[in-house]
Amino acid sequence: MVIERAAGREPLAALLFGRDDRPAADAVADLAVGPDGFSILNARQAPQGQAELLRDGLTFDLAGLAPAPKQDLPAAVHRVALSNDFNCDSLEATSFRVGPHLAGAEHLLPVLRVAAAILRHLTQLKGLQAIVWRPARIVMSPAWFAEAVGVWLAGGPFPALALTALVRNQSGIESEGLGFLTGQEFTLHARAGGPNREDSRIAVRLTDWLVTHGRVDAAREVVLAGVGAVWIEPDGGSRLNVAPR
């Protein structure tokens, strides 16, 4: 029954705990209480090791809680705010996904905001070592995630360095995970000599603009707040080439 309910719903995130530190559903229920929390649904009927979380009329499933078997560790190639010796392989994972009625809607911003709010609240769970945001294959400290998402939920810019990855290479900066929201990733081409701090600022502002405005299907100039104009040109249906003006 559990496998059937999860069909077609890839996890959005994984919560990584120290060995034998995964919380039980009771600990999640205790944390849920409060104005910034959520409700636990069908607690007595839920399969062991799972919890159905409700906030703002939307439901999400948390699986892999103790004493159920741990979830598979997700791929995570980008690291943020973690020590150099941090090792995911030594940790145990739980998985977080949208509820059955939201299947196919997980990329919509209203759903994503509620998911982020619940995950931010879950960063208070004892023993939590890291959070993986799976669309971007990024693993980060709970404190980093909570701060970045908190600013967004309070009306600030989209958390480009928590819900996407911005990867520097010799010629520029590439996004990963933005396509989950807009259907397009971008390559920001640096002017000369490789990407610098200003290019990083542009990439963050550009991510926020694209999340707000959606797909770009024709070449255009966009003026980004605080960093100036960029030229955006589609390269096929799923990629954008971007150059500072």
Rank of each mutant, 00 (worst) to 15 (best):
A66T: 15
R22F: 11
A115Y: 07
V216Q: 09
V211M: 08
L108G: 02
H101K: 10
A7K: 15
R44E: 11
I202P: 11
W209M: 01
A130C: 06
G172V: 03
S175F: 11
P159S: 09
R79G: 12
L181E: 11
M1T: 14
F60I: 04
L119Y: 02
R239N: 14
L122W: 01
F186S: 11
S83C: 00
T187I: 04
A7D: 12
G8I: 09
V80A: 01
G18V: 09
D199A: 13
A203P: 10
E4S: 03
F38S: 01
R9W: 02
T59E: 00
F180V: 11
V77N: 08
F158R: 07
L181D: 09
G214T: 02
D20E: 15
P159E: 10
D61I: 05
S95G: 12
A116Q: 04
R44A: 10
T207E: 13
A154E: 13
E10D: 07
A148D: 05
D89R: 11
V77E: 10
P47S: 14
L102H: 01
F86I: 01
D85K: 12
S83L: 04
L153G: 10
F96Q: 05
L210G: 07
L181Q: 13
G228N: 14
I131C: 06
A76C: 07
A76L: 05
L54F: 01
F86P: 06
D21A: 15
A46C: 11
H107N: 08
A192S: 10
S90A: 07
Q124H: 13
R44K: 10
P35D: 13
R245L: 05
H121V: 06
L54A: 13
D208Q: 00
R9H: 01
L206Q: 08
V167T: 11
A117T: 04
E198I: 04
A225P: 03
L166H: 08
L54E: 13
L188T: 04
A81P: 13
V77G: 08
S90M: 03
A25I: 10
Q71N: 01
R215L: 01
V223E: 02
E92L: 00
